[in-house]
Simulated scan of single mutants.
Amino acid sequence: MTRIVPATVRRLGSVAHRRELLATGLTRRQVETSWRAGEIVRIRHGLYGLLDLPADVIRAARVGGALAGASSLAHRGAWVPPRPRLVVSVDHNARDLRDPDDAGARLDRDRDDVLVLRDLSRFDRRTERLLASPSRAAAQVLLHEPAEHAAAIVDSALRLSPMQRPDLDQVCHLLATRRSARGLVTSIDARAESGTESIARLLLARDGIRAEPQVWVDDHTRVDLLVDGWFVLECVSKEHHSSPAAYDRDRERTIRITGLGFVVLEVTYAQVLFDWPSVLKAVRTTLGR
Rank of each mutant, 00 (worst) to 15 (best):
116 V>C: 09
217 V>F: 12
138 A>Y: 04
120 L>Q: 10
86 L>F: 01
52 D>I: 03
192 A>N: 14
102 D>E: 09
217 V>K: 06
117 L>Q: 00
186 T>S: 14
235 C>V: 11
145 E>L: 11
218 D>P: 05
260 L>M: 10
104 G>S: 13
229 G>H: 08
226 L>T: 02
97 L>W: 09
70 A>I: 05
144 H>W: 11
268 T>Y: 09
26 L>G: 08
264 V>M: 04
18 R>F: 11
158 L>M: 14
192 A>L: 08
135 S>W: 00
78 A>P: 04
160 L>F: 10
266 E>I: 02
43 I>H: 06
241 H>D: 14
143 L>V: 04
113 D>Q: 00
162 P>A: 07
270 A>N: 15
57 V>D: 03
209 I>L: 10
226 L>G: 02
270 A>Q: 15
230 W>V: 07
143 L>R: 15
266 E>G: 04
289 R>T: 13
91 D>P: 03
103 A>G: 15
176 A>R: 14
261 G>I: 03
205 A>F: 12
252 E>D: 15
73 L>T: 04
41 V>D: 15
72 S>C: 07
223 V>W: 13
204 L>P: 07
159 R>F: 03
47 L>W: 06
34 S>Q: 05
96 D>Y: 13
12 L>T: 06
194 S>I: 07
64 G>Q: 04
61 A>H: 14
189 D>A: 02
176 A>V: 08
138 A>G: 05
89 S>L: 02
172 C>V: 09
49 G>N: 06
204 L>E: 08
89 S>G: 02
99 D>W: 01
114 V>A: 04
272 V>A: 05
87 V>Y: 04
25 G>L: 04
32 E>K: 07
124 D>C: 02
106 R>K: 12
4 I>M: 11
157 A>H: 04
11 R>F: 11
32 E>G: 03
68 A>W: 04
119 D>E: 12
233 L>W: 12
81 P>L: 02
18 R>P: 09
61 A>Y: 10
228 D>A: 15
287 L>E: 05
108 D>A: 11
259 G>R: 07
270 A>W: 15
52 D>W: 05
98 R>H: 14
54 P>I: 02
215 V>C: 06
25 G>E: 05
179 R>G: 01
13 G>Y: 04
10 R>G: 05
212 E>S: 09
60 A>S: 06
189 D>N: 11
26 L>K: 06
229 G>M: 03
18 R>T: 11
77 G>W: 03
250 D>W: 08
50 L>P: 01
19 R>K: 14
42 R>M: 14
177 T>Y: 12
266 E>S: 12
72 S>P: 05
119 D>T: 11
135 S>Y: 01
239 E>Y: 11
9 V>Q: 04
263 V>N: 06
71 S>Y: 07
53 L>W: 07
171 V>F: 00
31 V>Q: 06
188 I>P: 10
58 I>M: 14
216 W>Y: 12
26 L>T: 02
162 P>F: 06
289 R>S: 13
278 S>E: 14
27 T>C: 07
221 T>N: 14
65 G>P: 03
50 L>I: 05
203 L>H: 11
264 V>A: 05
42 R>E: 15
266 E>P: 03
118 R>S: 00
273 L>G: 07
190 A>W: 10
94 A>T: 03
45 H>D: 14
154 V>S: 05
160 L>I: 01
108 D>E: 07
277 P>R: 09
105 A>E: 13
160 L>T: 01
226 L>M: 08
137 A>I: 01
39 E>W: 10
276 W>D: 05
